[in-house]
Design a protein around this nucleic acid. Sequence first.
RNA 1: GCGCCCGUGGCGGAAUCGGUAGACGCCCGAGACUUAAAAUCUUGUGACUUCGGUCGUGCCGGUUCGAGUCCGGCCGGGCGCACCA
Length: 1011
Amino acid sequence: MKADYSPVDVESSAQAFWAAQQSFKAVEKPGADKFYCLSMFPYPSGKLHMGHVRNYTIGDVISRYQRMKGKNVLQPIGFDAFGLPAENAAIKNKVPPAEWTYSNIDTMCGQLKQLGIGYDWDRRLATCEPEYYRWQQWFFIELLKRGLIYRRNSRVNWDPVDQTVLANEQVIDGRGWRSGAIVEQREIPQWFLKITAYADELLAEVKQLEHWPEAVRRMQENWIGRSEGLEIDFTVAGRDEKLTVFTTRPDTLYGVTFVSVAAQHPLALEAAARDATVAAFVDEASRGDVTEAAMETMEKRGVALGIDVIHPLTGECIPVYAANFVLMSYGSGAVMAVPGHDQRDWEFAVKYGLPIKAVIAAAGLPSPPGRGAGGEGVAEPAIPAREKPRLPDPLRSLARELRADQTDAEQYLWSLLRDRRFGGHKFRRQHPAEPYVLDFYCHEQKLAIELDGGQHNEDAHARRDAARDAFLAAQGIRTLRVWNSELFSRTEDVLGFLWEALASSEAPSPPAPLPGGEGRQAPDLSAAAFTEKGITINSAEFSGLDFKAAFDGIAAKLEAQNAGRRRVNYRLRDWGVSRQRYWGCPIPIIYCTDCDAVPVPADQLPVRLPEDLVPDGRGNPLLRLDSFVNVPCPQCGKPARRETDTFDTFVDSSWYYARFASAGCQTGMVDERAAYWLPVDQYIGGIEHAILHLLYARFFSKLMRDCGLPAVAEPFKRLLTQGMVLAEGFYRVTDAGGRDWINPKDVDKTADGSHVLKATGEAVTAVGLGTMSKSKNNGVDPAAIIDSHGADAVRLFMMFTAPPEQTLEWSDAGIDGALRFLKRAWRLVADHAALGATEPLDRAALTSAQKDIRRKLHDQLAKISDDFGRRHNYNTAVAACMELVNALAKFEDRSPQGRAVLNEALSALVRVLSPIVPHAAHELWLALGNATPVIDAEWPEPEADARVSDSIAMVVQVNGKLRGQISVPAGSTQDAIIAAALADETVQRFLAGAAIRKQVVVPGKLVNFVV
RNA sequence: GCGCCCGUGGCGGAAUCGGUAGACGCCCGAGACUUAAAAUCUUGUGACUUCGGUCGUGCCGGUUCGAGUCCGGCCGGGCGCACCA
């Protein structure tokens, strides 16, 4: 081997070796422990950028590690090859998208090979290949047969100048990206997949995915957004027609003062036909882009339709408004407006002078306590009124103080309990073992007091509270609930109640019914809506109920009247898969005037996409290609038209993981090999796919299972969400008003902080940090750094610079350090190998310096193995390798056993580095005298005996501040540790003249003296 | 606007279960080698300091013997919001 590290030679020879040996060809071996490692496939945008390098290096590191752990590994690669950027490139360069795409794929494959990623290249695929998409077309027809696909109208962005449908990305501030025209919304027929039919299963199973990041699971749950509510019918006044609304707050039904419908709602359209004001509003609402984000951020506006509906319980006449914030696609496109208890409705009512009614009061007792009707259903809080409020003396004065200062009940009660030692007991705010915040907790009495304002309706709170309550129950802790407001309104009752509860260790007295709604204080609605759940008031026979009782009561009554029904609603909408684009997988449908939409017969698949068209930005060129469009109807043979819409590219990427496992299968979408490889054991990809792609892929897996294909319910067992690689973005405005994105390498920063084009000095606009993407042209191409530093240094630097899940602002500062480390390690092995073979290690004959270096080695191996196997924190694994190299470089013992120890260490070092820097490790491993390649070597495991040490370093604190460090023999008793701590000079200085109130000993860590 | 995540030296980051804040690396300073430079090696490097210490993890508060870590509230940044992939 060469004495100095030369990445170019090392990398090309290792890559040649792997190619010649077919080292990464995956073969199904029944019975062998398989490991399917998949990084999200890239869009072939041209060249790799640093985000790709990060993604594919992580996948390769995991794959190579698992192989060393004895797994039969599959690591494939492919390309998500259909999509908009190819059409944009075609518009710009007048080159067919196919040609551009295939050439990009070639470039990127070359770069991936240069990086030394261990793919089974025989399984490579691209979604734009007919061999791939024919099965997608086949599957569409299967789903159509099973009733899981339907067609309906839905809205798209329409550019009236270019006469074309725009993607959301192509709409900038409500205008078309090329034409600058104000975008309109159009309704066109589109195909939909019934993902809502799987909403429950998708929701239930996402909770079970224990190896997925918590954040992703939460985002998916929120996205599916299951809510239980009521569908309520309002009769349109003077007609035999109903307006149906969905609400999750039927307890506020008596507070409805108007009803809002979407601008596209039939009632709004009907009113628009006769009223110019309404027509103008509907027209205006149909401009701008269709995204939810745009809807939510715009000014909330509306218009009265001149239509009334009848309240199903009160019989009142209620006006109907069209409002621009109501979504036609959620629920029924209509909502009952309760301005008293919904903030958006409140703002709307204030703006348009509509009445605001209070029908919910804060929970807690009315003041003064009354004896109203309808007490049932209110289970808590329940503090019995005291017959004769006879409090012990100190409590009576406390009660007076408490009532006098009605500012912050919680603060007040806390100072009461803490400082005055209420009832002689010590209170704290947390359980010592668990971090749940309890308002007040007394450990001796196992009694928790929860001070409640009646809120906590949000999911996160409710979840946390439920977990806390379960914990308290398991610990046998009594929980008393006290309403905030009661602390002031019934001070004596509350204090007496707490007093008695503390005095006895019995459960508190059974709840007494609370009085009803009459006399209850209505909330102040002058500044904002009261949105908490509370107790109903002004709601006829439903007054005085809590949320659940009011919900149940009102639901039962409406159901009896046939004016409402319980319904589970989802935020999740069915998945529209039609795209009015050329560069996508054709939807295999033929439209016949007699037979309607007819699926293309199986023997005519695939419907091939012509690959020589060049889109010009004015609609789908397929529309103008008669040879594609004009076909006979497969059923009746009459002239018919072929569907020119193509699939959403999310469809392409929803099943590619299964196709990899059945690569090249000619007889079906997947074959039995999928049953061997699936599920994917480790999936790696950007956090930006946390919701849509992952949800759609999970959905497809279930669809495939239900169609009897070899598939699994959940396709991805473990998920690693890689953080984005960010770079600054710059653009200049083109003559047409569009944006021309400039690569950061072509931009200079001027002295005043503005940015200019390097070549011309022309000013450019900076948009700040964002992910590296083709559309923003801010990708950093790794090619130059690979040339100057080598692939291994790039891989090492990528893994070292940050943990995989963290967002990373790209900078190559530090890449020199990666190369420097490789050179050091190389020299260490080269010097060692030059001295020839070593003796076997004799563990019994080692000097203490030799034992020390072995302890260091095996400690670091334990850390590195944990980082690889469990944490996926390769940055700290690399740091441990660096520390090891630093220690080995200082180890100058060249005695036979010294060299044996060094040999053991270098052998382990090369192996643990090999997943990250496979080329250098390949050659170093051979230099250490091994016959088989390092990719097939065994992962080195730490040796427990080598890690045993006879002394332990501990720190000594006084009042939590570091004051000294001691070394004690392993296995010392607490007393011996404390004695050693007290002997420390600095510690003595800080303890001088003070009595030690408490001493805390954390074994193996520290001693803390509290004075 | 809503949902999810993240804020630690000049920089990237470490501190894994509430227990020594700043591991490892970059940059920078000093020294060795060299005619010189590069490379390499050694060494220093949070701030302040009366050299005893004090302060310090976006901000404000809380819990704890002890908080970067847990809780509440702000501020800032990123991702997603259904036609970018």
